[in-house]
Design a protein around this nucleic acid. Sequence first.
RNA 1: GGGGGGAUGCCCGAGUGGCCAAAGGGAGCGGUCUGUAAAAUCGCCGGCUCAGCCUACGGAGGUUCGAAUCCUCCUCCCCCCA
Length: 396
Amino acid sequence: MSDQKTPAWAVAEADALAARSVNCEPPGALAEKLAEKRPLRVKLGVDPTAPDIHLGHTVVLQKLREFQDAGHTAVLIIGDWTARVGDPSGRSSTRPMLSPDEIDRNAETFRRQADLVLDPERTEVRSNGEWFAGMTLADVLALTSHVTVNQLLRRNDFATRMADDRPISMLELVYPLMQGYDSVMVEADVELGGTDQLFNLMLGRELQARMGCPVTQVSLTMPLLVGTDGVQKMSKSLGNYIGVTEPPEEQFGKAMSVPDATMAEYYRLLVPAEPGPTGHPAAEKRRLGRLIADRFHGPGAGEAAEEHFNRVTRDHKAPDDVPEHVLGPDDPVHLPALMVAALGLPSNGEARRLIQQGAVSLDGVPVADLDVARERLSGAVLKAGKRRFARLVAGD
RNA sequence: GGGGGGAUGCCCGAGUGGCCAAAGGGAGCGGUCUGUAAAAUCGCCGGCUCAGCCUACGGAGGUUCGAAUCCUCCUCCCCCCA
């Protein structure tokens, strides 16, 4: 086990595989494993709590892909059972539980989207329901016998909540054990995760050792990608995310709205092969937006998205592909109702407000009236706010 | 088992009988500015074809001319003691 015996090539390879990571624990362990010259089993667990993958997920997925490209096996664990519990990591409060149906649907979507980053050929997909569904109470007790509450409470999320007298559910306490047991079952050599996962990953290592698993895993954690708000970590529920399946124009637009200070981190974590930003922030952000759109929608998508952006956002013009909306028989037309129908606004009141605030126009001419003659609407482009459009056409 | 505290709009949080569609903050949306960045600034922010009406302060009843505010029961949550 002495570090001296680890060959230099293995150390170099370990360094390369640990690029951009925050932790790679324990020190030297990855190199030792690589020195064994066998394909490592690299585990990544994802809880299908939200169906869509966003760029934050891709940071870790990309790392997993790098392991695949180096000849190792990716073990993607869909946490259909852990999702029922809710991971407390990085959370200040308990998560709501999801219904089995919801979980299944999410898992399916997630799996499909993960293949945008991973090499499906070298991905072993498992569901932890495989081993959790059939567990008896005796099994569960045996599992819990390996850790102490004190040990679990040392974890930061719990410690601060204890200090603040905020609730910690039993289920949450069990979560790290479940995740750790996954590692035992798939015999993971390496487990990847965000920095918030370090505790869970280390516990997995301990469980493996205590439960007689032939390997103990290396914990490799990646930085958490900050959201488009530049403040909180990217997450669907905070609405500060860029989804991998979003339309390229959306991705480009969202990339443009990222704070300047955050841009360098996006370059580093999302497009590590590209040179970082050195020019004018606006130009570099455009490049970033193009790279992101290209990556998930193919070459050329970025350029098209940028043109769309120029047209709609910079020049305040309607895009080429304005969706059509067929007018009803009313005359005059009640504009708020029309806006709800044609533009998907949440309520007539919202539409009414936009009109009052001068945010609504017909063919570029601001509208102030709530009721508009049908004749004036027919054939016109209705616009509300910066980027909601509909081309109105007369019905029959 | 005993005692105490709490549940308010997307989130946090004020409000303890009328002046409450409910302070304040955050988030969000819109206008101006701009690089859809930051900063600034003005406005909106329950629903309704809207000077009015309707629905709302955990749930169900009740007291009252009038209840987010008082009473009863219920549900859920937190803390302390055991």
